[in-house]
Write a protein that binds this DNA or RNA. Structure first.
Lengths: 134, 134
DNA sequence: TTTCAAATGCAACTAAGTTGCATTTGTATT
DNA sequence: AATACAAATGCAACTTAGTTGCATTTGAAA
């Protein structure tokens, strides 16, 4: 696995290197599955302001550092990396029991025909089922 | 196109045939794209109680009469029919501009490999892009 | 070390969706 | 047609995710 330099990520995206951002991005990188606001808040340990956290998540998302997943629960979850790389998109697996969201590493490279006049920009796939732990 | 009898749908699913349900299901059947709570409320015209509407949407969803779509906006949208029929799943197209959600009629019949121990139950695909009207 | 935009913290707000409970209504039964 | 009862409705109050405006603080560049 390739080592990631946080400093580089921040510099490349014109984001100031603050304590919270370092901790937050660390959380997201090390997470084994997608994290909600609540998950992140707990994981961070330190007291964090809600709006600051959300603003940072938005900033990271806009910069393409993380991506947001919206499953059936209505609560947004965030995961490190982009949904689509040069080889295709990846899917998300949502466990019905524990509600954990995993990024499925297999790349999807299918095309979906859309009606005339429609232009596709991105494709997100959500799989529901039962995870190995449940 | 096949004619649908609302009475039959209600009877089959053990749902009482109320004024609101008839109007609501009518709205959903006739809609050209997926409807949010707000869309439905406006479309119905009549005064509707929020919780009653939501409860009915849940009831319809549980009965498999309609399905719920969760796009990036965080607001649930509802569309008539099931996501998956005997031929595969259908995808949803979300317009980035007008936020309209369309059901894409093409059936998807691909398989996604999930990690060992994971069991897939359903697959939902969301396409974002620009619709023909925008 | 100064400077300034960008980031933070706080409080107040918005909006989606839920819950509990009293009242009403659809339908099955007599 | 009258009765009976569960299921559906309406209302009010609540919960929770996420946002906004603004004063204060801080990172980094000059």
């Amino acid at each position: 696995m390739e080592q990631i330099s946080l400093d580089q990520v921040f510099r490349e995206n014109n984001l100031k290197r603050t304590k919270l951002r370092i901790a937050l991005l660390g959380c997201l990188i090390n997470a084994k599955h997608a994290q909600s606001y609540i998950d992140l808040k707990e994981r961070l340990g330190i007291e964090v302001d809600k709006s600051t956290l959300y603003r940072n998540l938005s900033a990271f998302e806009e910069a393409g550092i993380i991506h947001r997943i919206n499953d059936h629960s209505g609560v947004s979850k965030y995961a490190f990396g982009k949904v689509d790389n040069h080889e295709g998109n990846h899917a998300h697996f949502v466990c019905e029991q524990c509600e954990t969201v995993f990024c499925v590493e297999e790349n999807l490279n299918f095309e979906i025909k859309v009606p005339k006049g429609f232009k596709t920009r991105s494709v997100q796939t959500i799989i529901t089922g039962i995870c190995s732990a449940c």
